[in-house]
């Protein structure tokens, strides 16, 4: 094997250096060495030319545009996952109680919350309508209610056949 072959990436099983050269990821010094080798080695030159062709062809494969509501759908999934885990944490003592795995004591906070909700929510008439022209103010609880309504609407929207979406 002559000196030229000793440096030949194809001959000494180091073709990845040619790959890196084609990917322009070599240091300048190595790049210069490979370029010098390519002037003398037809095999490597052909290999590199083919590799460039493959990459040029791959460049032609453009990616598809991303749906406008990608983020919205992701945040919805995150919010749903967080709500589910919060709900599971909150109901855990109650569920364990009904499964008989726990005594009475841990249930009392849940009972207290239920009682508070019963009292607080029964005071307000849920079917009251907003007087017209009044400044709109939103309590934290109402934001959550609106959020839940929007989530349900989104669920119902998603259940429609895709053909119906054209009217969006």
């Amino acid at each position: 094997m002559n000196a030229k072959n000793n440096q030949c990436p194809m001959q000494n099983g180091n073709a990845e250096i040619l790959l890196s050269y084609c990917a322009r990821s070599l240091e300048p010094e190595q790049t210069a060495q490979i370029e010098q080798h390519l002037t003398a080695c037809a095999e490597c030159r052909a290999w590199a030319a083919e590799q460039q062709t493959v990459w040029a062809a791959m460049d032609a494969w453009e990616a598809e545009p991303i749906s406008a509501d990608f983020d919205a759908a992701l945040f919805a999934r995150i919010a749903a996952a967080e709500r589910t885990s919060a709900w599971e944490r909150w109901t855990s003592p109650v569920r364990q109680f009904f499964q008989g795995g726990m005594g009475w004591r841990p249930v009392w906070p849940a009972v207290a919350v239920a009682l508070t909700l019963v009292i607080a929510l029964s005071i307000e008439n849920p079917f009251r309508t907003e007087p017209a022209g009044q400044t709109v103010k939103l309590e934290a609880q109402e934001i959550e209610q609106a959020e839940r309504a929007l989530e349900d609407l989104e669920m119902l929207r998603q259940l429609e056949a895709p053909e119906e979406e054209t009217s969006l």
Partner: peptide, 20 residues
């Protein structure tokens, strides 16, 4: 990884090199 890439590019070269 080097082996995976080398084999993959070999296949792609065989299929796409004629596009030069």
């Amino acid at each position: 990884v080097k082996s995976l890439l080398f084999r993959a590019y070999e296949t792609l070269r065989a299929k796409l090199a004629h596009m030069a």
